[in-house]
Amino acid sequence: MCDDGEKRDLANIAMLACTFGCDVLYEHGYIAVAPHGEIQVSPLAKDLPAVAQHIENWLATRKVTWWNEDREKAYQWHHTHTFKNSPPA
């Protein structure tokens, strides 16, 4: 959903993440990156015990070191459009 200029801004819209866990959970909206790199967990993650356990064991207390103010706009977009903040209507 990025415009052409945003697609080319790889320094701020791309983030390396492990495929086994972090990336999948982020892309499916079960985790988000809050300001200052805190990991925010979707309230819906608790409905999937294996997902909730993985987040609790590996991600809940970590910070995203890739976060900075220049990248915050992309993280906010993800939070608004992808993060599962509440059950679907």
Rank of each mutant, 00 (worst) to 15 (best):
W67F: 09
D70W: 05
L10N: 10
N57Q: 13
E56K: 15
W77M: 14
Q53Y: 10
A89G: 09
N68P: 03
T19C: 14
V51Y: 00
T65S: 13
W58M: 04
H28W: 09
H36Q: 08
K73W: 13
K84A: 04
E27A: 09
W66E: 13
G37I: 00
A60E: 10
K63I: 09
P88Q: 10
E72A: 14
M15N: 06
Y26V: 04
Y30T: 01
N68C: 08
K84P: 03
H79D: 10
G37F: 01
R8P: 07
F83I: 01
P43H: 13
Y75R: 06
V24S: 15
Q53F: 09
G5E: 09
E27W: 03
T80E: 15
A50G: 05
I39E: 04
F83G: 00
A17H: 05
V24I: 14
N57S: 09
G37S: 02
H54I: 02
W66N: 11
D47I: 02
D23V: 10
I31M: 02
I31C: 01
E27F: 03
V41A: 00
N12M: 02
H78C: 08
K73H: 12
N85C: 06
H28S: 13
T82R: 09
K7N: 15
T82Y: 04
A74G: 05
H28D: 10
A52T: 07
F20A: 14
V24D: 15
T19F: 15
P87H: 08
A32M: 05
D4H: 07
P35V: 06
H78Q: 11
Y26D: 02
N12E: 05
D47P: 01
H79F: 12
L59I: 08
E56P: 12
S42Q: 00
C18K: 04
E69M: 10
L48T: 10
V33A: 02
L10D: 07
K73M: 06
G21E: 01
Y75D: 07
T80D: 15
L48G: 05
H81V: 08
D23Y: 12
H81I: 05
P35D: 11
Y30I: 01
T82H: 08
A17C: 11
A34C: 05
W77E: 13
V51E: 00
N12Y: 05
G29M: 06
G5R: 06
Q40P: 06
D23G: 12
T19A: 15
W58H: 09
V33P: 00
G37M: 02
T80F: 08
G21F: 01
I39Y: 03
A89E: 12
S42P: 00
K73Q: 10
